[in-house]
Computed example of a mutant assay.
Amino acid sequence: MARGRNKWLSVTAALLSASLVYGLYMLQRQQLVEQETVAVLAPNRFVDAGEQLSASDLAWVRMPADAFSRDMMTDLEAAAGKETAIPLGRGEAIRDWKLNEHQLQPLSGQSTFQIPKDYVRSVSNGIRAGDRVLLYASGEGDESRRLFTQPVVVASVKSSANVEVDGLEQSHLLSMAENNKDGMYTARRDANAMIEYINLNLSEEQWLAIDRLCKGGAVKLVVAYSSHAAGRFGSESQYGGEEAERP
Rank of each mutant, 00 (worst) to 15 (best):
L134M: 14
S175N: 09
P106Y: 05
I127Q: 03
S171A: 09
R95C: 03
L24K: 12
E34T: 11
W60H: 10
S235W: 04
A42L: 05
H102T: 06
E83W: 04
S227A: 15
D75K: 09
N6M: 11
G89W: 05
D48W: 03
L20N: 06
I195A: 07
G240V: 03
V38M: 12
A39C: 11
G231Y: 05
G91D: 12
N192W: 10
S156V: 02
L135C: 12
F148W: 07
I94A: 03
L221R: 02
A193I: 00
A129I: 02
V120S: 06
A191Y: 02
K98W: 10
P247S: 08
T186V: 10
S159K: 11
V219T: 15
L16D: 00
E242C: 02
S138W: 01
D66E: 14
Y136P: 01
R189L: 15
S235N: 13
K181W: 06
Y185I: 09
Q105G: 05
G81P: 07
E205D: 14
G217H: 07
S108G: 02
R45W: 04
I198M: 06
A85D: 01
R45A: 10
S19H: 10
H172Q: 02
L41I: 10
N162T: 02
D96E: 14
Y25N: 05
G89C: 03
A42T: 07
T112F: 01
R62P: 01
R146V: 13
S156K: 13
D190R: 07
G91E: 12
P87R: 11
Q114V: 13
Y185F: 12
G130T: 04
S160A: 15
M72G: 08
V38S: 03
R62Y: 01
R90Y: 05
M194H: 10
G141L: 09
K220A: 09
R189I: 00
A39P: 14
S56F: 06
R188C: 08
L15Q: 06
R232F: 08
V123I: 15
I94C: 04
Q31N: 15
Y185W: 07
S237I: 12
N162G: 00
L9M: 11
T186K: 12
L32T: 13
I127W: 02
R132Q: 14
A224R: 10
E140S: 12
H172P: 00
S156N: 14
R5W: 03
G234C: 06
G23E: 13
V33M: 09
Y119D: 12
L168N: 15
E169S: 11
R145D: 03
S156A: 14
A155I: 00
I115V: 15
A78T: 03
S203V: 04
